[in-house]
Design a protein around this nucleic acid. Structure first.
Length: 215
DNA sequence: GCCCAGGTGGGTA
DNA sequence: TACCCACATGGG
């Protein structure tokens, strides 16, 4: 795993992922990006900023229908509006409306609290922990599965937790590294996995059984 | 028009 | 546990 990281880091350089003004903005983005192109999420985030609603109290002040309209570009907007409101309700009920207070707790404890919320699964929880809370919780997404499958490290039936453990067991628990590694995996997949199946210039070409075969 | 995108939860066997 | 499906918009 460390070898993969080093090659990707050398090829792509620092990616400075998930720029945001607050942990709460990260959490909103993590929920809105579920099975959705990030470009669409950016439009919804911009709408929320325009409406001065990109904070717990701002979301709380909106009617369900108003929130739905603001986040409509991100798709699944009815479902996501409910999830955002439930998330904010939870913050006010249990953490004085502050995501920072929630994220200040022990990693495993915070993770369980997030996973207990409707609409927050493992990837969303880990994204909030890592990118919002700077806690060393590795994020596994579709790109991670795609890359590890291409390298024949995965064979299709591994669970989310198994794949996460693969990284967590082998790497130092440093948030900056987990952050960068996940971003590098996404960049690698966007650049090489789909567009160039034979990836002659892919930094992982000699580790990739598929790429070194003729067809 | 078709396929896909930084998932998740509910229903069914 | 293991599938199957709904959820919705926007870009290539």
């Amino acid at each position: 795993m460390l070898g993969i990281f080093e090659r990707l880091a050398a090829h792509f350089g620092p990616l400075h992922w998930w720029p945001s003004d607050s942990p709460f903005e990260v959490a909103v983005g993590a929920i809105l990006t579920q099975n959705t192109n990030w470009k669409n999420v950016e439009k919804a985030i911009a709408n929320l900023k325009q409406a001065v609603a990109l904070c717990p109290s701002g979301i709380k002040a909106l009617a369900r229908e108003e929130l739905e309209e603001l986040i409509r570009p991100s798709g699944f907007f009815r479902q996501k509006a409910e999830r955002l409101q439930l998330f904010v309700d939870y913050l006010f009920t249990n953490h004085q409306g502050s995501l920072e207070r929630l994220l200040a707790g022990p990693l495993d404890d915070v993770r369980q609290k997030l996973l207990a919320l409707k609409g927050i699964g493992p990837e969303t929880a880990d994204s909030i922990l890592l990118y919002g809370g700077h806690q060393p919780s590795f994020v596994v997404d579709a790109y991670t599965r795609r890359l590890l499958s291409r390298l024949e490290i995965l064979h299709g039936k591994e669970s989310y937790e198994q794949i996460r453990a693969l990284f967590m067991d082998q790497l130092p628990h440093e948030p900056e590294m987990f952050n960068e590694f996940h971003a590098l995996i996404v960049e690698e997949c966007k650049t090489f996995c789909r567009k160039k199946p034979l990836c002659p210039s892919c930094p992982l070409v000699d580790m990739c059984p598929f790429a070194t075969q003729s067809g």
